[in-house]
Design a protein around this nucleic acid. Structure first.
Lengths: 159, 159
DNA sequence: AAAAGTAACTTCAAAAATAGAAGTTAGTCA
DNA sequence: TGACTAACTTCTATTTTTGAAGTTACTTTT
């Protein structure tokens, strides 16, 4: 299966990952949430090549995750901003951050999140949308839609 | 900057992404959370090449995200299971799922999460660890540690 | 008026990663 | 004995990424 074909799966995880689940895209999104807006800042702050940055920004714009906006006509200059679709990727970035903070360092986190609501340093957690209780892997059971089950049993038999 | 060097950044997002932020690793983790345990099932259900699957499983084992365990001595057969480090990646997978469900499909989600605590279909949300209120991108302010600020202003000047 | 600088890119060759097909190992089953 | 199975490994072709250099359309400095 080629990379592109991942997005043809019916699973929304596969689709999401096919579009925005690569390392440099996630680094771009980190920068977006740190208020970076300009090409050369993305370039220097992520350390990626300009070629790839250009490609990724175009892809994200096409997808509707970010939009490109002129902030000067002469000389022509552009900046990149999140759309709602882009802002909704925040939980993905935060999830990576929490995991990294927990498992990959003993130091203080390099970024702390201050919750505007209560003014405290927050380490956001997942909670159940229905009852509001905190939720972890073992608190949930995955229930597969019939179509997805079928897709999977076909795939299993292919070997 | 080569890919590997991402993990030398002090930012835990960069580190996390360098280790587990690629498409196939995330697909492997999806399968882990769907209770897949065996090589050929990962192979067929993700659609990745066996070469890459083998590499990724080794990397994840070395990192401590999964462990490899014999379930038969003769013939020698192995299965893969999550460690606590691996289970803690659940929020990453769920975050991708929620985003995909919201932005990439109009159909019913292919997977529904049933919360064991309340027995309802749940779409987990982030909440503040301090006050328990739901949290989104605009509810937080990022506060950078001095060392990270310094790292970043050096990087900015490199252009 | 010419030269240097700047932001936002594009181009290109070399290196690295991935895909897909085929092969291997250590067995069991008919 | 021959087919089958799970869990891989090996190989070459293709695709992606890197890193350096170049381009465009201006503004600022000398």
């Amino acid at each position: 299966m080629s990379r592109a074909n991942l997005s043809s799966q019916s699973c929304s995880i596969a689709r999401a990952v096919a579009l925005v689940g690569d390392q440099w895209t996630i680094m771009i999104m980190r920068e977006m949430f740190l208020a970076t807006r300009r090409f050369d800042d993305f370039l220097n702050l992520t350390g990626m090549s300009s070629h790839l940055l250009s490609q990724r920004l175009k892809k994200l714009e096409t997808l509707g995750v970010i939009r490109r906006q002129a902030y000067s006509q002469r000389p022509p200059r552009y900046e990149y901003r999140l759309t709602q679709m882009g802002r909704d990727l925040w939980p993905v970035i935060i999830a990576f951050k929490q995991w990294g903070d927990r498992w990959l360092t003993d130091d203080e986190p390099s970024v702390q999140l201050i919750h505007k609501g209560c003014d405290a340093a927050s380490t956001p957690r997942l909670m159940c949308s229905q009852c509001g209780e905190p939720m972890e892997a073992h608190d949930a059971v995955a229930q597969l839609a019939p179509a997805f089950e079928q897709e999977r049993s076909k795939l299993r038999k292919q070997s």
